[in-house]
């Protein structure tokens, strides 16, 4: 799980062009939206594409979004649970 979390942080930094951040700056449980990284709705779409491109996972239910994208850790858990 730790390896996946680190990898995910690297992908997020690259995909969202968070130039001044390193993986160490993003807490595993830190909120991604509103607080913490303070991402917005465009970033949410970028994260959906990231899941699909990097892990082949489509977010099937839009209502799951807030739970899945709550933090890097919840994203990693979702990937682990849904990866074929």
């Amino acid at each position: 799980m730790d390896k996946l979390i680190l990898e995910l942080k690297e992908h997020i930094i690259e995909q969202l062009n968070l130039q001044d951040l390193t993986p160490a700056d993003i807490g595993d449980d830190e909120p991604l939206f509103v607080e913490g990284l303070a991402l917005d709705s465009i970033d949410a779409l970028e994260l959906i594409v990231l899941l699909q491109q990097q892990y082949g996972i489509k977010l099937s239910k839009a209502e799951d979004g807030p739970k899945v994208f709550a933090s890097v850790k919840t994203m990693a858990e979702y990937i682990t649970a849904n990866k074929a």
């Binding site: 995909q15 062009n17 465009i42 779409l45 970028e46 594409v49 699909q52 491109q53």
Partner: peptide
């Protein structure tokens, strides 16, 4: 497929 919104914007 899988085009990101930022590039389009």
């Amino acid at each position: 497929e899988m085009l990101t919104p930022t590039a389009f914007i």
